[in-house]
Design a protein around this nucleic acid. Structure first.
Lengths: 341, 341
DNA sequence: CTGAAAGCGCTAACAT
DNA sequence: ATGTTAGCGCTTTCAG
């Protein structure tokens, strides 16, 4: 095992002080008026022996780790996976690495994870927060950590967040179903007090009541395990034979919904019109293609990382907090069209 | 901003030496025969003030960062995303954090990324390696870093790897198509010299030639951008009207294939029988459901993390290198069944 | 322009 | 059983 060389080794080899090496390596040669010759010599030697600064030591000294902690519900969910990918690209381009973790929307787990991230001195946090995590996030902010929330926010916590216009999204989708002539429209969603979920429910309710229809809301406990979503869903569908349309509150529920429909041999939109929140290949390629509320994933990722980088570069920017609400795009496909019957 | 407290702060507060605190915090109280009373007092105080050890300092001192570097082709690809999720769970359970990155199969990018990971002193590497990265991986191994490859391996690099039986998988899938009576069977895959791809091609070829049929192989340049996959795919399908079946080499190509077929209004299996490598919701829910070669994702993740943890815990284990070849499962669905015509 | 030296927070020999 | 102390590798003030 090749011994790791340190800044001292290269200083000795070149008969220069380590300070000088440090300055050169950190691009402060100009500023410190170090001779071009020396700079060149050092750079060449460093390249030759393949010296890499120990960023642990650097972090310990400077207090910044150049690491961003990314906490999502589930990294394997296509929505979060695409966000993670985009954030990764932009972060690396700016010299930051990403440590990720999946919270499963579990408050205690998230708490532990935040604590881990703190220990590791991550410089900034990108979080899709579960319920009940307000205090932990607040303490993070009080300690001066840059935090950007996304996908949802915490009403009593003043910090930057990026999300979509959930209320209008489901309102609009529900109106679309009503306009198509559907009347027994259910919303199936996760039982949750998270802002995005509450807004999605309200949007649906607003549209339903504005037309004097009856709201039918089925809430399912959050679970990774598909069976535990499909079971109540199956019961619900069987128990409500008059339904003519369902709006699914997330891609995960939507996908499970499609699986149940397949089992029960129900076809959209004839047996049941379908719209789901989030858009991805499953919905695009389904027969019939599924109408979906597409979130602007790139835009979300861009805002998230830009806001965070802003705060990272300018601590005073941490003071004001921005909320960015982006529009979704209702991709109307045949699963929600009455005329295609 | 609350000042971060250090081990010295808590030592002073309790009038104990920091060594003692350190021992207690590291569970070496027994061994060092520190009085139960003191231990209790310290633990309580630590909990009360919420002291967290600075793991940067700890890492600098001990030389291990408790971080694993995970390098995949694309974290937003469902195959890699699910692996990432499973690896994450197991790593965190064992006290390791995950830094991830997507290589895009780009050698230079991967090289830079490895270099970044080295700088950060990650303790171990989990890599789905692109072509041409042999030397970098070798130098990692020579420097004593635990490295586990997965999804593919590097023939000239002696290290542990976990992969599936690619050759048999495509052989078996192709045989299935032949048995169903298809005769003009194409393989569409990424142009790549990676082991898994070569094996997939060979498996296909073996099956084809064993029946005296003609191999039709379409290679497409690797790309994230779907358009750049769909365009050549479209041309290929249009240019080969006698094809009666296609085996897609990856989930990404398979999905693009389905999109093109949708555009061209070709139905499986009537117009074209379809099998794809990798299995996921898109294939399961498609109409007709798509026959797929399902990789044992959990098993892969388990082996990957277990082998890595072994090496991490016992450096001597690094010497012997294991290769684990797992079986895939051909999920036969109607897209490949002649009888369903 | 360059060097000496302090110190980031922690661990672990080595005292006592 | 507990304390002293020397670094881990780096940045950065301060002195030349």
């Amino acid at each position: 095992m090749k011994k790791k060389l340190s800044i001292v080794d290269i200083a000795n080899a070149l008969n220069v002080s380590k300070t000088t090496i440090s300055f050169i390596l950190n691009g402060r040669a100009q500023e410190k008026r170090i001779s071009g010759d020396l700079v060149k010599k050092v750079m060449e030697y460093v390249a030759e022996v393949g010296y890499k600064a120990n960023s642990l030591a650097k972090s310990l000294r400077t207090g910044k780790s150049n690491t961003i902690g990314l906490m999502v519900e589930d990294i394997s969910n296509p929505f979060f996976a695409s966000i993670a990918r985009l954030i990764e690209d932009r972060a690396y381009k700016n010299g930051y690495k990403i440590i990720y973790c999946s919270t499963d929307n579990d408050t205690q787990k998230t708490r532990d994870l935040i604590s881990m991230f703190r220990e590791r001195h991550v410089d900034g946090y990108i979080i899709a927060p579960p319920e009940g995590i307000e205090e932990d996030i607040e303490s993070l902010i009080n300690d001066g950590m840059p935090v950007v929330l996304f996908d949802r926010h915490l009403p009593n916590v003043a910090t930057d967040f990026i999300e979509v216009d959930n209320l209008f999204s489901t309102y609009n989708a529900t109106r679309h179903l009503i306009d198509q002539g559907f009347r027994n429209i259910a919303l199936v969603t996760f039982a949750s007090q998270q802002t995005q979920m509450l807004d999605r429910v309200r949007g649906y309710q607003d549209a339903i009541t504005s037309k004097g229809l009856k709201a039918i809301i089925k809430e399912i406990a959050f679970h990774q395990d598909e069976e535990l979503i499909m079971n109540p869903l199956r019961d619900f569908m069987k128990g409500n034979p008059d339904l003519d349309a369902i709006l699914f509150g997330t891609n995960h529920i939507g996908t499970c919904g499609l699986k149940v429909m397949k089992e029960l041999d129900k076809k959209a939109p004839t047996d049941l019109a379908i719209i789901s929140f989030d858009d991805y290949d499953v919905f695009k390629l389904h027969s019939p293609p599924i109408t979906a509320i597409a979130q602007p994933v790139e835009e979300i990722a861009d805002y998230v990382i830009n806001v965070l980088l802003d705060k990272l570069n300018d601590r005073s920017a941490s003071l004001r907090s921005r909320s960015v609400i982006l529009r979704t795009d209702l991709k109307i496909r045949s699963s929600s069209l009455k005329s295609s019957v």
